[in-house]
């Protein structure tokens, strides 16, 4: 098994574990962390699988760089929203949904 395929498999495990954590937890910060880990797993798959049995490829690397920028921006936005939510209500979770 090549190193690239190994990266991709680790990425799959990270995505699956983080998705489970995202669904299981209600604390907003934990959910955000789970999302970040899911993103990392996704990038590993993107780089690993695309370069598997091929020459080094600049395109997935460019894509991952863009993806990291997007993830940082969304994390920043989410943190700001958490702080405002916590300041407004003193809660660290969202209220239960009453509407299906």
């Amino acid at each position: 098994m090549s190193a690239e395929l190994w990266y991709a498999l680790v990425g799959v495990v990270l995505v699956a574990a983080a998705f489970g954590a995202f669904m299981a937890h209600t604390h907003l910060l934990r959910r955000l962390l789970a999302f970040n880990i899911m993103g990392t797993g996704c990038f590993l798959i993107l780089v690993g699988l695309a370069q598997h049995e091929r020459a080094p490829d600049p395109i997935p690397q460019a894509l991952v760089l863009t993806g990291i920028v997007v993830a940082v921006a969304s994390t920043a936005l989410a943190l700001i929203l958490f702080r405002r939510w916590f300041a407004a209500t003193g809660r660290t979770t969202l209220p239960e949904e009453d509407d299906g």
Binding site: V15, C42, I45, L46, L49, A50, H52, I59, P60, L63, G67
Partner: peptide, 9 residues
């Protein structure tokens, strides 16, 4: 994005 990664691979 995961789907796009698979398609690119």
């Amino acid at each position: 994005l995961l789907g796009v990664a698979l398609l690119y691979a």
